[in-house]
Design a protein around this nucleic acid. Sequence first.
DNA 1: AAAAAACTTGCACAGAGTGTAAACATGCAC
DNA 2: GTGCATGTTTACACTCTGTGCAAGTTTTTT
Lengths: 226, 226
Amino acid sequence: MPKTQTASDTAATPAPSRRELNKAATRQAITDAARQLLRSKGPGNFTVEDIADAAAISRRTFFNYFSSTEAALASMTHGFLDNALAQFRLRPSDEPILESARAALVQLADPMTVAPMAELYSLAQSNPQLNRSELEAWDHCTEQIIEAARERFAGAPGTEPDELYLRALAGSVISCGKAAMDVWFARCGADLSAESLSTLRQLLIDAMGLLGSGFLPTATPSTDRH
Amino acid sequence: MPKTQTASDTAATPAPSRRELNKAATRQAITDAARQLLRSKGPGNFTVEDIADAAAISRRTFFNYFSSTEAALASMTHGFLDNALAQFRLRPSDEPILESARAALVQLADPMTVAPMAELYSLAQSNPQLNRSELEAWDHCTEQIIEAARERFAGAPGTEPDELYLRALAGSVISCGKAAMDVWFARCGADLSAESLSTLRQLLIDAMGLLGSGFLPTATPSTDRH
DNA sequence: AAAAAACTTGCACAGAGTGTAAACATGCAC
DNA sequence: GTGCATGTTTACACTCTGTGCAAGTTTTTT
């Protein structure tokens, strides 16, 4: 718990006020404590009070930051997906949108990015509470992609952004990304080796390929076996 | 919560024993009470005890049937989606799978079927708790579609059911169905008139069309208005 | 009719979330 | 710096959720 944060504030971020720093540190302390407890005790086997104690804050303060243990854990997934969204926004807006999605997703198959996600993902399979929070995170990301896509089309000439098109597309992209993740975990577990990540990358590409080709006949997709 | 006979006893009802009937009736009483309270008090403004009182059972018994108020409410959505799944399973297995999905979804645009859903759907938009339960229901349905599709392909000759294909397809179909619903609610509210339902039907068809054509360029989809 | 199995209920208890008011930290003006 | 406005943490109290348990009630079986 950051009482006196003192000296080392050489960080050159936009608004490094004392308050901002303290809040960020507390938030970090909470998520770290939560992740630690998840590892040591397993999902559902620890309480908010346990997290608060481990983070050296009061139970009440925990609830000032997160509305539940699951929300604290899901912040990792949110980080992961926010990253994907940021990648998407960086793509040139004249690029085919599915290509942008593909590129953004492939960026995620990177150890640093995928690691915090991977741990949660496997645990969420066997834990209803966690799973619901994960679903919510993906849904939230979908909403943001819709927004991003809307903006992209708004900048273009005669292409009026049809609402159904936007929502169906964004939802499908996310679903396909999720499908690729599911298959990856089924195949590789939480393996983060180079070849495992390569498999993930290929799965993401294949999934986008399926989407772009309209799930054509029943033919086996392009290049599946690494 | 004694008994009332439901619609499905015409042909060979498996086991219309007293116990089964009582349980079904209690279950019904609970969901009815929950729906009633949702209408009268609004989401989040009533407790499990309120539902139990209204259904003339004990609080403890409520939890023997549902794990939360949201779960009780989500049973409507589950019914709706189970219906969709049943429609899908009825389709001939040599039909293109997207066509089966389209047909199954269009069957849902029927007053009796969509009515219980419509009410919840709009409320879930503004209520996080409800929304999470809805997401879970859609996810559950996705899992079941994956299963159904797997079985369908298992019965075919040389087409081995690729896991990625199955999951990406099922997820996308559900996402598109959801997108159509979202747009429908945005346009028509909870209107259940014939023309409103016709709009829904067309949206579902259009969404499937987008999916089948790989969300082609940025062209506006086929027949969208009215 | 009596035993067995299934279901309901009241009670107790740990934990989730939230409002409130007092204490404490930080930012800002002078 | 002093002083004050504003934001944050904390203890406390309270309601509600969800579950185990044991005793009661209803349905099924023998």
